[in-house]
């Protein structure tokens, strides 16, 4: 009875989470949904007399694999959302048809079989003195070769990931000497003037005033200035507004 309740609750949760995984636009939500499914499955493993697998599921999947997913998501851009508009004609329709058809076929096949009452793993585990001991017995005796191969696979995968993610520098990293030389060869040996931050605007998009009272265009951060011009957030002072516009123009000419 307890198992039935657990199953139905977790079945509903996991199917809903799986659908959420397929349907959510943001990849991070997908990752979270996947985590929910994996957690539910871990519980179901535990219910089905597989405590070791349940632990491994939590540790490997929800622990390692999910972290890896999230890590890559952060690298690729966490705030990116997918467009859900299908670009390949008929792909979505036929994918759903095939998916439903496949599920129906499997369900039909399973439904056709009359299962006797499950044997249960009591006999198998008690023979070795527990689930973990039983698995260990199998891994290190009958399946030891597969186990070794799997370990080789893991090492290879780790190496492969290193090789793939590694990026060669095209040229040597500039030293301090190189940087200083580049700076004195350029138009501004001294640091550029900082932005003029006034009391009214605690923002660094304000141009600075030089000692003679004129506005310094060099002090304007050009990327911010471009946003300001695009969104019309220019200061009321026409001299400052003009300086920002000038900075944008210079920026565009230099492109």
């Amino acid at each position: 009875m307890g198992e039935t309740i657990t199953f139905w609750v977790l079945a509903v949760v996991s199917v809903a989470a799986a659908l959420g995984l397929v349907l959510s636009r943001k990849a991070v939500y997908c990752a979270l949904m996947l985590g929910v499914v994996m957690g539910s499955l871990a519980v179901l493993y535990a219910v089905q007399e597989a405590p070791f697998l349940a632990a491994v599921q939590i540790i490997v999947y929800t622990g390692a694999v999910m972290m890896l997913f999230l890590f890559v998501l952060m690298l690729v851009g966490v705030d990116s959302t997918d467009s859900l508009v299908e670009t390949i004609k008929g792909q979505r329709f036929w994918a759903i048809v095939a998916g439903l058809g496949f599920a129906a076929l499997l369900a039909l096949a399973i439904g056709n079989v009359a299962f006797v009452r499950p044997t249960g793993l009591g006999g198998a585990t008690s023979q070795y003195g527990g689930n973990v001991q039983g698995l260990a017995q199998l891994i290190f005796t009958r399946h030891v070769f597969a186990f070794e191969v799997a370990s080789a696979l893991l090492i290879t995968a780790a190496l492969a990931a290193m090789v793939l993610a590694h990026r060669e520098r095209a040229k040597a990293k500039p030293t301090q000497k190189d940087l200083a030389r580049a700076r004195f060869a350029g138009p501004h040996p001294t640091p550029l003037p900082g932005p003029g931050v006034y009391a009214r605007h605690n923002a660094n998009d304000m141009p600075a005033l030089l000692p003679d009272g004129t506005v310094s265009e060099l002090s304007v951060n050009r990327i911010i200035a471009r946003h300001d011009v695009q969104e019309g957030r220019l200061p009321e002072d026409p001299r400052l507004a003009e300086a920002i516009r000038q900075a944008v123009e210079v920026e565009e000419e230099s492109k």
């Binding site: 390949i88 792909q91 036929w94 096949a109």
Partner: peptide
């Protein structure tokens, strides 16, 4: 993804045939 769709169709056909 188009290729994957045909693979799924193939799998469905094989499953149906086995059934």
């Amino acid at each position: 993804r188009s290729y994957a769709l045909s693979i799924l169709f193939g799998a469905a056909v094989v499953a149906g045939a086995l059934l």
